[in-house]
Design a protein around this nucleic acid. Structure first.
Length: 347
DNA sequence: AGTAGACGCTATCGTGCACC
DNA sequence: GGTGCACGATAGCGTCTACT
């Protein structure tokens, strides 16, 4: 990160705006309506191969390819899978039944902060054209569909049909693809809800992740880190319970395409938010107390992590605001301290 | 050796706007 | 409604550096 302090400040600014506009609350309500009216699944099931891990050695897997500096592509795909689980039985064909905008639409599922103007340090300044929060969400949904389609002809996670002449995209008629992507065949490999295989083929995510705002509030790198840790915890259940899971550099880079910064920052933020915790080798039920960084590991021994699904039952906005505010205070204090040291010992 | 903060560069998107 | 461009925002990436 260029400057952790500035990045944290930006993030807090956005969260504060979303808190003010109740954007996350509104999106979570829309999702809960779909969940309640539908099949109300406790967990959603995700396919592993070709999504978390590459389908071939050359490809970086889609999950980490969707760790992008901006946009909602990764989030939108996960939301679409959640919606499918609420609506469809295992194996049912996916057919789009929602408009892109308006009541009960795809854009109602996403929370954004809106147009920020750095010069005036304010949100939603006046424009010549009509622009509302709804317009901006719709635009981001379309941009996400572009990004998901442009992952490549095989890896594309959606298909968007084109008009006959001119080739304009008909976003409203998009189709969702399996986690493994559209595939190389002429017929796209349309999404179906998978059967939980209880092995490395699949892993599950609690619906609380979608219903309590976490999907809106976490960054794509945090989501990717969390999903990878989750998958590990389910593939190695005993090891996870006893000593936690860890991802070594080579496997992290080559097996999952997750870069160092994303992983390290991801783990720290997830720990602060209470979604994962330090594991101490040989310690069972480490959830009773959080182990401080200094005591938790030997020198140069990597952190080992355990998934803490208790954390998901908390309100994401509330938790993140609290933790990021705390972190901002620490970063400010550290910066002030550095400035003072420099003042006393000028080079 | 391995870890981690700092920092400039850059890829990629968000938004505004004109145009179709 | 969709597209393409301009401009700006931003988090990842490569690299340097200091530290243990």
């Amino acid at each position: 990160m260029a400057d952790a302090r500035e990045a944290n400040e930006r993030r807090l600014r956005r969260l504060t705006e979303m808190n003010r506009s109740k954007a996350v609350t509104a999106a979570s309500t829309a999702l809960r309506d779909v969940w309640t009216a539908g099949r109300s699944p406790a967990d959603i099931v995700l396919r592993t191969k070709g999504f978390l891990t590459p389908s071939s050695a050359e490809d970086r897997p889609p999950l980490t390819r969707l760790v992008l500096p901006r946009g909602i592509a990764q989030r939108f795909y996960l939301l679409a899978i959640f919606e499918a689980h609420c609506r469809l039985h295992v194996g049912d064909p996916w057919v789009n039944q929602r408009p892109l905008s308006g009541v009960g639409s795809w854009s109602d599922f996403v929370a954004i902060d809106g147009a920020y103007d750095g010069r005036s340090d304010s949100y939603m300044p006046d424009t010549k054209q009509v622009r509302t929060d709804g317009h901006l969400r719709l635009r981001q949904v379309k941009a996400a569909l572009n990004t998901l389609e442009e992952l490549g002809s095989d890896q594309a996670l959606v298909t968007v049909p084109r008009a006959k002449n001119g080739g304009r995209r008909r976003y409203g008629e998009f189709s969702l693809m399996k986690e493994t992507g559209r595939g190389a065949h002429q017929t796209p490999d349309a999404y179906t809800v998978p059967m939980n295989a209880w092995n490395v083929e699949t892993f599950t995510v609690p619906s609380d992740f979608f219903l309590n705002g976490w999907v809106q509030v976490l960054s794509p790198s945090e989501v990717a880190t969390w999903l990878i840790l989750r998958a590990h915890s389910q593939w190695a259940v005993d090891q996870h319970a006893e000593s936690g899971v860890y991802l070594y550099g080579k496997r992290r880079e080559e097996g999952f395409g997750l870069r160092r910064d994303a992983w390290e920052d991801g783990c720290q933020r997830l720990r602060e938010f209470g979604l994962i915790r330090y594991a101490r080798p040989g310690t069972l039920d480490a959830d009773l107390f959080d182990i401080p960084a200094e005591e938790g590991r030997e020198r140069y021994e990597p952190y080992r992590w355990q998934i803490a699904d208790q954390g998901l039952t908390k309100d994401a906005m509330e938790t993140c605001m609290r933790e990021l505010t705390l972190r901002q205070q620490q970063l400010n204090a550290a910066a002030a301290h550095r400035a003072q040291m420099k003042n006393e010992n000028p080079q």
